[in-house]
Design a protein around this nucleic acid. Sequence first.
DNA 1: CTCCATAGTTCATTTTTTGAAACTATTGCA
DNA 2: TGCAATAGTTTCAAAAAATGAACTATGGAG
Lengths: 120, 120
Amino acid sequence: MISPGCPGAIEPILTILDGKWNLLLLRELFNGTKRFGELRRSLHPISPKTLTDRLRMLEEQEIVTRTLYPGVPLHVEYELTERGQRLQPIFAAMWMWVQEYGACPQKETDDGGQDAEAVM
Amino acid sequence: MISPGCPGAIEPILTILDGKWNLLLLRELFNGTKRFGELRRSLHPISPKTLTDRLRMLEEQEIVTRTLYPGVPLHVEYELTERGQRLQPIFAAMWMWVQEYGACPQKETDDGGQDAEAVM
DNA sequence: CTCCATAGTTCATTTTTTGAAACTATTGCA
DNA sequence: TGCAATAGTTTCAAAAAATGAACTATGGAG
């Protein structure tokens, strides 16, 4: 479907990073193992359907593992695989970009350039 | 709309990277200045509407500049801004990941592993 | 005044993604 | 038996994104 130009075929990563929630979901998982309910709360207005869809896709892509813990209230933990952990440099590069250049232009107020102050 | 967890707010970059075509489009622009028609051919099954939509968004985000060259057949060149160039490390990280881990599981053919041959 | 080439725009339609609400499944305990 | 807690699934509707085809705009050459 895609005709890759020579320098750098990024296609295999498109499935993983594309979509409204994938980057945010992966960011959560970089902070460690998470349970379904935790993810649902962190990503708050996400619907359970969308969340399971994304998680299943990431499982298929071998980016996360799903572990079921039976018990009184059963629970499930999602964790990054090795393959998933290795995405970290991509996110690190994003974070650096956002720090230096993240202040979006969005809508320029025409009263002159008052850049957004740092958001952290 | 999004409640950022402390470590690394990547939200400002979501607009820029999200969507089916954005990564592919940016990749083209890392190879240098491109004209509308060139982009259209490189990204082949893209529709002109989608292409202009994406380019306008990237302009608003100050990732690309649009320069009109009047002349016999007029033409337009799209080029990355400084801000856009600085996205390069993100793509570099993606390329490295793809090289090492890119072979997608996709659908495991149970007849044994005949991996896709290199597409370069 | 028409034609060519480039770069779009417009509009209706299709495809894809997301969503909300309600329902299922598991298991121990009261 | 019935409830509580977790983690989903199902169904149908809504919203967003992408598409295709045809049309507009520009400006010089013939």
